[in-house]
Design a protein around this nucleic acid. Sequence first.
DNA 1: CGGATTTGACCTGCGC
DNA 2: GCGCAGGTCAAATCCG
Length: 220
Amino acid sequence: MAAVGAAPLLYQQQAQAVGDGCYFSSMSSQFSHGGISSTSSSPASSFSAALSATPAIAADPEAQFDISEYLFEEGAFSASLTPVVPVPAVAAAGASSATAVTARSAAESAAAAERPRTERIAFRTRSEIEILDDGYKWRKYGKKSVKNSPNPRNYYRCSTEGCNVKKRVERDRDDPAYVVTTYEGTHSHVSPSTVYYASQDAASGRFFVAGTHPPPGSLN
DNA sequence: CGGATTTGACCTGCGC
DNA sequence: GCGCAGGTCAAATCCG
């Protein structure tokens, strides 16, 4: 999929176009939204699910935000997809902690082999805030301190009725500057903040927001 | 006043 | 069987 490689660029353009209110979810609409397009485990639906789960720009424009590492995937995700996920060079700074997390995920994956497979994806993000606005509305339902970590883990559930997607948010035990976000499941609906672009300014290269709903025939 | 958050209790799975 | 750890529930509380 050629469009996948352009994802980071597109992301930047959207950030310029709409300031602090844009989301990856608007990009995911181009690839079809996970859960709506199909329930199969094809790479396309898997990647769209990954994108819909990707944390985007924080609501607070002053907050530092940097997607640093794509940690793991399981369930319907294909291992071959890993290289296409954008992983900024910042990841190298936390190599040791990244290894630890990956090892944990390997153990979890082994255990998950016996469980019903659910789509699951995790990101390690350098951010001053823990609540990264990914375009969906989340309701917090629990908080738990975890062993071997000074930081509590927060549990969120998608507040949209009928959608049972969950996410866990916790600060990296090795480097509190990083936030580890784990998404579980696939949204059964479109992001409430999904935006669509009607045109692109030839001079500036910026996109213009057309609205929060797709134009007729745009989702073919 | 309604929705979101907090937080202690409870449930479940797993290792010993 | 028991204890521990992770995950979830639900009543109390907070907040816009």
